[in-house]
Design a protein around this nucleic acid. Structure first.
Lengths: 240, 240
DNA sequence: GCCGATTTGTCCGTATGTATC
DNA sequence: CGATACATACGGACAAATCGG
């Protein structure tokens, strides 16, 4: 049983673009012909196309058509605009991930933690430090804070595998929105202890607040990335 | 004369959210009531709401409603997902921008330039180095490559003001899509010469390829940011 | 636990405007 | 000018999730 119609059309077109069924700069079939090939309404194909625009795969132009602007050259390690667990992105890039849990505790948010994470003071939290390896190299040092009431039953064992898989598949937490900021920070002692930074004294830091389907922020994570293996990608559009 | 209907609804709701007319975590009026207040169809209000979702302002939940999750706390210097010129983002943050043109030349892309920028070898280009100041501090060192055929008549004088304003308002170039990657790189000699990096030996690098309305990539830019003034923000959504 | 009201999600069909060729 | 293509907008139908009685 497939998903919704517009999703399957989106995936089909995406696959065709990725497999170079449409050439770079070539126009895709018009909306009207897509309506015929997929047997659906115009709104539905337009919705699929808009998703491709958001991905930076195609560009639309009124009166002309939909142009393929996908270039497979650049393969970003971490794609912006969608939420992915470390394990998922590693597997997507055909790399073997490993995670080591350095620290697993529970704590109550005081003012300091509250202002850093955005959790209300007094929140009961799990706090973890995790080290992520890719192909044997230590690349990311993660500081995770999870709301205990939502990530119930989290264990170091689970944290070594995939926390997101546990949240979604076991606890049925709907993961919806994540607000992220990306900065560059001076390395700390603990960074240097676990990550091989070479002669760099800075690293890339991604801080994220993640919300569940009820609008509750249940996760704050700070990911500290070894700079030479860090690449963020996004597609922006202009609306003046 | 206003814009399209859904844009004006989007802007109106956005303004109300930003001015705390709806509280954090509060549900917005239902789609049906918005239909009445704005006198439009359901599709139109839904489109406005989807734009707010993309901005990370609200979250929708089937059967419940649309929840305000906007928190004014974090004001990012550079917002992801939209294309902004340096001048625009500076003015948005109420800061006084200044730009100094270090270098302005024309060149023909050889293989090396081609592989770095993505322009085909043989392309006729403008090449610029520009230094951007904010409130008197040198924050960003920009390397710009523009396709001569599209950015016709570019001068150092214009580059000191806003290139985007020239492209859009004078040449009527439609700026549509930009593919960006964010990395952290070791500083170079020229970085150290112009940017005050303190004791950091790295900086944040944003590389972007920008396309016009005809699907032609007309700009490649590498922006090298002083790390302590660099902040990128984005809102991600999960679609497993 | 069931039922009905409310609310958002998906999908369809149609009409009109606007840009391109 | 007409044909084609995408953009905007409207209206309606049914499904799915939520909530209260």
């Amino acid at each position: 049983m497939p998903k919704e119609k517009y999703t399957s059309i989106y995936k089909d077109l995406k696959a065709k673009i990725e497999s170079s069924e449409y050439e770079f700069q070539e126009l895709l079939p018009s909306e009207n012909s897509l309506i015929l090939t997929y047997g659906c309404s115009r709104n539905t194909v337009r919705r699929a196309i808009q998703a491709l625009v958001a991905d930076g795969y195609v560009q639309t132009q009124q009166g002309k058509g939909v142009r393929n602007i996908f270039q497979p050259a650049i393969q970003a390690s971490f794609t912006i605009g969608s939420i992915e667990s470390f394990k998922e992105s590693a597997l997507r890039n055909h790399q073997s991930p490993k995670t080591k849990v350095l620290c697993f505790t529970e704590l109550t948010a005081d003012k300091k933690v509250s202002s850093r994470t955005g959790f209300p003071a007094g929140s009961e939290l799990y706090y973890l430090q995790r080290l992520h390896y890719l192909d044997g190299k230590a690349l990311i040092l993660n500081h995770n804070y999870f709301l205990k009431s939502i990530a119930q039953g989290l264990t170091p064992k689970i944290a070594e595998q995939s926390i997101y898989a546990y949240l979604e598949q076991v606890l049925h937490v709907a993961i919806v929105t994540s607000k992220r900021t990306m900065t560059v920070e001076k390395m700390t002692e603990i960074d240097g202890k676990y990550l091989d930074l070479g002669d760099c004294n800075c690293l890339a830091v991604v801080s994220s607040q993640t919300y569940n389907g009820d609008g509750v922020m249940f996760e704050y994570t700070q990911s500290r990335h070894r700079p030479d293996y860090f690449c963020f990608r996004d597609n922006a559009t202009r609306h003046p």
